[in-house]
Write a protein that binds this DNA or RNA. Structure first.
Lengths: 354, 354
DNA sequence: CATTCTGATTTGAACGTGCAAATTTGCACG
DNA sequence: CGTGCAAATTTGCACGTTCAAATCAGAATG
């Protein structure tokens, strides 16, 4: 059928190059122009049904897939979202990485984006961000573990780089954020303990200065006020995030004049230490001492007794973050706003009196 | 200085476009051609020192960074490595994600690559792989948790897609892999226990059929043989990977005619259950019953007592995997080979007799 | 039947870079 | 001072796609 061939042939058909087929290859097979194929994929309403059918078939036949790089070069977007994974500290259970990253990747995929991981650059907090945005490797970022006046948020803001944070800034600033209401989580834990009959409830938090920690601590104070319990300063302590620190804190609490019968911890890591110290002292956790953690890390259900913990809706957080970010990237400016999601208290044996 | 300007001007200088500067912008400032700038970056030896200096300065001045997409389009490579994160099962501590992913990202960066995460596609085990490679979004893959005759490895192999696995295939096949000698890890644990005086050492493994699990089990048999201890089938049990399963297994073992004085577990998750069951039964772990885990997950040092565990050199694994993969991607064919790294036994209180 | 209009399709150009070939420059030599 | 040669630099083109403008086909209109 040589006469069917058009005069000008693509001198480099896909097979000859040992590469995937291109728009031109599909176009030739479907006997349409390159642009029509492009339209079938990107603006189907501009193409006649019959033509669409023919093109689709050619695409099928050749197993064509658009070349991401070529498309992105033209559209000036990478359709990649950058996410920095911080170095995990040994001895501290990373509450976020596993579940959150997973959720992030899935949410991004649903919106046609991919997640690119990177680690902090020793050249400075934002060097890695500059690099990625400078080379246009990513279109925007998701920041987690943001603190007050987070330098990364400030820098990205100044550069006009799109980003959404997991965690809210302290002052109302002009960027979009999603956060979990940690205070409400602690509040729920305290209410739960009070409902079990506990009157002397302690809180082991992180040292002041971390946005996340401070807000959880506030929830503690709020809950006591709501319950009409007085806020005994001796029952409100602050330690670094470590199991040993938690253990020491509990021992200290137990040595007080009026020791607590229940302890709410700002993290599961600390709760692990509290559990350990309690067990070592022969205190029956659950009946004699109730303990609650925070983050519902994978270990919570593995501890003895199983640990009551506040679970963050990380999947929902990731979903909302990606939605907001892709909106911004799509140019749907809108004014930046925040969204506060409610955590959920997972009650387990460590706070059961029986 | 109008007379210094060349006749033909770039009609779209960077500032006018509101985008980053391009090679052309740098070239104009440095008064050289676009290609010379490219050479300064990619083949410095082809450029005169003086010219290099001028170009460097222009690059500095404009804050130029090469446009990744454009470069990659031309070089037909994305300089991205794909890594699939499997859905983590609740109640099982993911031994790999945190440390390994981190190490992977850092190793990749050192070789000029980025890591792109993705999750399994419900359309099939390799659909997501096909998609990424079809759109040329990634250049190759790192596979972890590979099993015998892993379908992903087979499919990628068939398609000629570059990849390196963490985990070795059962038959000598034609792909490169890195693995940790799990058998040797269990062996080390058994030897350590024997050195503490234990004669009846049990092993709690996974059901047969998983490459990783079977090899760890083999190490157990090997160690017993080396030590001249007989391989009592009653002390070699298999359960699913869960804390409860570990607990049941221990109880079962303790009910035997001659119960073990030491237990090596194929995972920390199982060890957690064993610890729990032992404690519940009033057995002093460390002195009366020694327990060792595997993977040295973040919880191991947080347990009571702290858990002896076999630690995989994940950082080294990631490093070697990336090195091999980038070699392959650079065309440095070489014949595929494997590399077996030794794990390290981290001794803690759970196997200390005092 | 010529004209206008609308929708469908094609053509030309560009995104920013790197490879290959072409050109220019600098320098040693007879 | 021309000649030859290697080194330095430039020019042309292509990577695969999308956007904008141009062309074409077909129906509706006067």
């Amino acid at each position: 059928m040589a006469e069917q061939r058009s005069g000008r042939e693509d001198p480099h058909p896909a097979e000859a190059r040992g590469e995937g087929p291109t728009l031109n290859d599909v176009a030739r097979v479907a006997r349409v122009s390159r642009q029509t194929v492009s339209n079938v994929l990107n603006a189907p309403d501009k193409v006649r049904t019959e033509t669409t059918r023919r093109v689709q078939q050619a695409i099928q036949q050749l197993g064509y897939r658009p070349h991401r790089l070529a498309r992105n070069l033209k559209t000036r977007s990478s359709r990649m979202i950058g996410y920095e994974i911080a170095r995990s500290r040994p001895g501290v259970i990373n509450p976020v990485l596993d579940r959150f990253v997973h959720a992030l990747v899935e949410a991004a995929r649903d919106d046609g984006y991919h997640v690119l991981l990177f680690t902090p650059d020793e050249a400075g907090q934002i060097a890695a961000y500059d690099e990625l945005v400078g080379t246009r490797t990513v279109d925007g970022f998701v920041l987690s573990e943001v603190n007050y006046a987070d330098p990364r948020a400030i820098a990205l803001q100044a550069r006009g780089v799109p980003f959404v944070t997991f965690g809210r800034p302290d002052v109302p600033v002009a960027h979009t954020w999603i956060d979990v209401d940690g205070g409400a989580g602690v509040e729920a834990a305290v209410h739960h303990l009070a409902a079990q009959g506990h009157q002397r409830i302690a809180f082991i938090g992180w040292p002041e200065g971390s946005a996340t920690g401070d807000r959880r601590a506030e929830g503690f104070g709020r809950a006591l006020a709501e319950l009409g319990l007085d806020h005994d300063a001796a029952l409100d302590v602050r330690v670094e995030d470590g199991a040993d620190d938690g253990a020491h804190a509990l021992i200290h609490l137990l040595h007080g004049a009026e020791p607590p019968t229940a302890v709410v911890c700002v993290s599961d890591t600390i709760a692990v230490g509290v559990l350990r110290a309690a067990t070592t002292r022969g205190l029956a956790v659950g009946s004699e001492l109730a303990v609650a953690g925070f983050d519902d890390t994978p270990v919570a259900p593995l501890l003895t007794p199983q640990l009551t913990s506040v679970r963050q809706p990380l999947e929902a957080v990731a979903q909302r973050i990606v939605n907001h970010l892709t909106d911004i990237l799509a140019g749907g400016a809108g004014k930046p706003d925040g969204e506060l999601l409610a955590p959920q208290l997972i009650v387990r044996a460590s706070t059961h009196p029986y």
